[in-house]
Design a binder for these strands. Structure first.
Length: 111
DNA sequence: TTCCTGACTTTAC
DNA sequence: AGTAAAGCCAGGA
């Protein structure tokens, strides 16, 4: 397991309830530009600990190959956490996008 | 070790 | 605005 993976898991785990982040954002916060690696990391981790359902595409849509039952389940989980969706079936990043700079205050879990 | 595919993003038409 | 193609880098076979 690479340190890169650990970082991805760490950041993903720090996303507060009711918020989501994107692959690209996580990728950029680490020493890489490749968002795909982030996706691979989460996919490899799917059977374990990280709330991967809080990680979405840059356009707000959900992962096409979500391992816990598909995007539908992922969406349901997000809705349960208070994350709103648009009529397009995408996450409303305007209100629920969790920025990297917010990770430092994630311990307070806003809202 | 090499080749192929992929939970992505961005630019171009 | 919507669709298509290219680029990146690693993991799995």
């Amino acid at each position: 397991m690479t340190d890169f993976f650990q970082q991805v898991y760490a950041l993903t785990s720090k996303v507060p309830k009711g918020k989501v982040t994107t692959y690209g954002t996580i990728a950029k916060s680490i020493s890489t530009r490749n968002a795909r690696r982030v996706g691979h990391a989460l996919h490899s981790n799917k059977n374990s600990r990280v709330p991967c359902h809080r990680v979405v595409f840059a356009n707000g849509s959900l992962a096409p190959g979500y391992a816990f039952g598909g995007p539908t389940v992922q969406k349901k989980k997000l809705l349960s956490e208070g994350v709103g969706f648009t009529t397009d079936g995408k996450v409303d990043l305007n209100r629920f996008f969790f920025q990297l700079g917010d990770f430092k205050q994630s311990e307070n879990i806003p809202d």
